[in-house]
Design a protein around this nucleic acid. Structure first.
Length: 246
DNA sequence: CTATGTTTACCTCATG
DNA sequence: CATGAGGTAAACATAG
């Protein structure tokens, strides 16, 4: 049976789980990261089946986002106000599907408590930093040093390149535990290149992952973020290519 | 208020 | 039969 294509389903229900549909949407986006509304849009755009009964399936989809550890909620940048957060995939969730077909899942992706805790700690730190930054802006409005758009990249992902567990990269070392960073440069370290607002559907080929020269030597954020993106782009380039053929 | 998230419960289905 | 994945409903909570 040939790989199904976008037009194969029409009004029929596509054979993909919500997790697969959401992963497709995220993968197809330039930053590998989307707000909920964009995930909805991706799905309704290419699967007419989901243009009906939206309350039902969108509730299910939100349930999946919250319930499954493979999805990570990343806080918005303070200069990009909006309704919800951005959703991305945990890099370790990439071997979740067999053969990359998105049709079958190997096993549920679950983080162990320690991993989950440190991830949550970092995301909370990010949100906390946002608040601090916002407060700072309120005090000194003029020059927001955040002109070039883009999003945070989650930075505390443990790299596990292959089935063979090589060494254990120290995740905790990536998280500045103690005093929250007070200077604004840490936010620059988290900036991503401008996503190139191509509005409708055609996702940009593969976004250039420019080194994005850091200003002052950035904290571990940048290195971790870059490693994260390298993982996204390298480990799954074949899957991403498949999705782009749709 | 609505969109977004979180959580619990219960159901079906496949698999061992 | 037990277990796990996935789908659905629903009861919240919270942010904009």
């Amino acid at each position: 049976m040939p790989r199904p294509t976008r037009e194969s389903y029409g009004d029929q229900k596509p054979p993909f789980s919500y997790i697969a549909l959401t992963a497709m949407a995220i993968w197809s986006s330039p930053e590998r990261m989307l707000p909920l509304s964009e995930i909805y849009r991706f799905i309704t755009d290419r699967f007419p089946y989901y243009r009906r009964n939206t309350q039902r399936w969108q509730n299910s989809l939100r349930h999946n986002l919250s319930f499954n550890d493979c999805f990570v909620k990343v806080p918005r940048r303070p200069d990009r106000p909006g309704k919800g957060a951005y959703w991305t995939l945990h890099p370790q969730a990439f071997d979740m599907f067999e053969n990359g077909s998105l049709l079958r899942r190997r096993k549920r992706f679950k983080l162990h408590k320690g991993e989950k805790d440190s991830l949550n700690a970092e995301l909370a730190a990010l949100a906390s930093f946002n608040r601090a930054f916002l407060a700072r802006q309120a005090g000194a409005p003029p020059s927001a040093n955040l002109a070039n758009g883009g999003l945070y990249a989650p930075s505390t992902f443990v790299s596990r390149p292959s089935p063979e567990p090589i060494e254990s990269p120290d995740t905790a070392a990536l998280l500045p535990i103690g005093p929250r960073p007070r200077r604004a440069f840490t936010i620059d370290a988290l900036l991503e290149p401008e996503p190139r607002r191509s509005s409708p559907s055609p996702p940009a080929p593969l976004p250039p992952m420019q080194p994005h020269c850091p200003l002052p030597l950035p904290p571990p954020y940048l290195l971790a973020a870059q490693r994260y993106h390298a993982e996204l782009l390298a480990v799954n380039s074949h899957i991403i290519r498949l999705i782009h053929e749709w």
